[in-house]
Every structure is written in structure tokens, then in C-alpha cells.
């Protein structure tokens, strides 16, 4: 028996919005420790890794490990039926081919049950090596979304360069060139407005704009985003999900031949 209750169903709605542009389907691996998902996008350029810890749920029970293969467009249709303030409970029997999403209004006067068929998906989990990154940057997630959206107008790629002085995003194309520089903030009223840089070595890497724009769909999950970079390895874009977990996107760099 698997059962997971979340008072704020909006969290799962936002998680789904954050992954459904990159992935058509994915396996939600449920265990005693929580729910995890790892999947590459169709072109195998990026990888999504989601972790929702069991202790972050309002109620969580998972007697046996369960892999739920889910069509994300179908799940999205169901999650749209939930109000933001509804309480969500996901339920599945052991070895089930169905998962039930139950939504309850706060006053418990309306209860909705949606059953969704599960799929058998080929699972290929990749081992992600522990890495000490040369640069770790934290910045407001809305700022990051804005920057990648603005620079996408100039070209398909964005160069992200990090030095002690700051972080620079650059793009160029037929209409011209664009550069956006952010310095580390010295004094902000709110932590979520801060730009912080931890740098061991300066790094400059090139990435495809369209994936960064897809990652930015996670913006509503967290006021801050963390970018981790080292030379010639994938960028990590991480959004914390309240007290329950995180979503990490790994993006393979563009490299000169």
C-alpha cells in the first residue's frame, strides 16, 4: 500500500509544470524515504532529478517499493482539477496498475477521486558523480527566468561566465549581441533577493537556451535558484521545494570540437 498526503496540492501542481515541458512520461519511484524521479529529456541533452522526502508529506506510507510509470500530460489533466487549496492524497495498491489522486476541499465538503492508469516504462537510471563545483551561484529565480527569456531572443546559446566579480550571461546572433552582468549583492533586505557567488576557479560554459527556459518553469517552486558549474561538465540548476525536497536539472554543455 502506498499513500501520500499533501495539504498543499499546489506543490505537486507546480512540480508537474516544472517537468512536463521536458518529459512526456516518467517513473515516480516510491519508497520508504519518499518519491524520486530521474529522467532524460527526449534528446538526451538534459536530465531531471526530483526528490520529495517522505518526512515532508503530511502523511506518508509506502509498505513496498513501487515504480509508477506516468504519462505526464494525463497527470497534468488530473492535477488541473485540483484547487490550489485542496488537500491531495495519492494512493496505490502494491503491484497496482492504477494510481488514485484524491482531492479534498479545506472544509471537506467536496471530495474528488481521479484514477489514472499507470504505464510500464523502460527505466534507465544514470549514476550522477559527486562533484566539487568550481562555481556555485545563487540568485533570485525570477531574475534567472527573465535573463534566459531575454537572451533567447538573440540566439540559440547562452554563455554563462562566472568570476569572483560576478556572473555574466551572453548571447549573440543575427540581430546583435547581449550581455547581462550580475554582481554579488552586498546588502539586501530579503535573503531571497540576494545574489551570492562561491568561486574556486572562474568558469565559462555554453548552453542551449531552450533547455534553460524549460528549467525556468520551476520558478514558482522557489524564490531562489542555484547554478553549479565546472569546466566541461553539466550545469546543475537546482530549485528547493519548500521543506519537502528539490528539483535538479542537469544540462550538458556545448563544447568546441
Amino acid at each position: 500500500m502506498f499513500e501520500a498526503r499533501l495539504v498543499q496540492s499546489s506543490i505537486l501542481k507546480k512540480v508537474l509544470e516544472a517537468i512536463k515541458e521536458l518529459l512526456n512520461e516518467a517513473t515516480f519511484d516510491c519508497s520508504d524515504s519518499g518519491i524520486q524521479l530521474q529522467a532524460m529529456d527526449n534528446s538526451h541533452v538534459s536530465l531531471v532529478s526530483l526528490n520529495l522526502r517522505s518526512d515532508g508529506f503530511d502523511k506518508y506510507r509506502c509498505d513496498r517499493n513501487l515504480s509508477m510509470g506516468i504519462n505526464l500530460a494525463s497527470m497534468s489533466k488530473i492535477m488541473k482539477c485540483a484547487g490550489n487549496d485542496d488537500v491531495l492524497t495519492m494512493k496505490a495498491q502494491d503491484n497496482a496498475d492504477l494510481v488514485t489522486f484524491m482531492f479534498e476541499s479545506q472544509n471537506q465538503e467536496k471530495v474528488m477521486d481521479y484514477e489514472m492508469k499507470l504505464m510500464n516504462l523502460d527505466q534507465e537510471h544514470l549514476g550522477i558523480p559527486e562533484t566539487d563545483y568550481s562555481c556555485v551561484i545563487k540568485l533570485p529565480s525570477q531574475e534567472f527566468a527573465r535573463i534566459v527569456r531575454d537572451l533567447s531572443q538573440f540566439g540559440e546559446s547562452v554563455v554563462i561566465s562566472c568570476t569572483k566579480e560576478g556572473i555574466k550571461f551572453s548571447a549573440g546572433g543575427d540581430i546583435g549581441n547581449a550581455n547581462i552582468k550580475l554582481a554579488q549583492t552586498s546588502n539586501v533586505d530579503k535573503d531571497e533577493d540576494a545574489v551570492t557567488i562561491e568561486m574556486q576557479e572562474p568558469v565559462s560554459l555554453t548552453f542551449a537556451c531552450r533547455y534553460l527556459n524549460s528549467f525556468a518553469k520551476a520558478t514558482p517552486l522557489s524564490p531562489q535558484v542555484q547554478l553549479s558549474m565546472s569546466a566541461d561538465v553539466p550545469l546543475v540548476v537546482e530549485y528547493k521545494i519548500g521543506d519537502i525536497g528539490h528539483i535538479r536539472y542537469y544540462l550538458a554543455p556545448k563544447i568546441e570540437d
Partner: peptide, 14 residues
């Protein structure tokens, strides 16, 4: 122009 690499080039299959 730099070429797009695949994520599986960096991460190992078990």
C-alpha cells in the same frame, strides 16, 4: 560553433 553534447556522456549507466 560549439557542439551540443549528450548528458549520458557525463553520467554513467549502472
Amino acid at each position: 560553433d560549439p557542439k551540443q553534447t549528450k548528458i549520458s556522456k557525463f553520467f554513467t549507466s549502472p
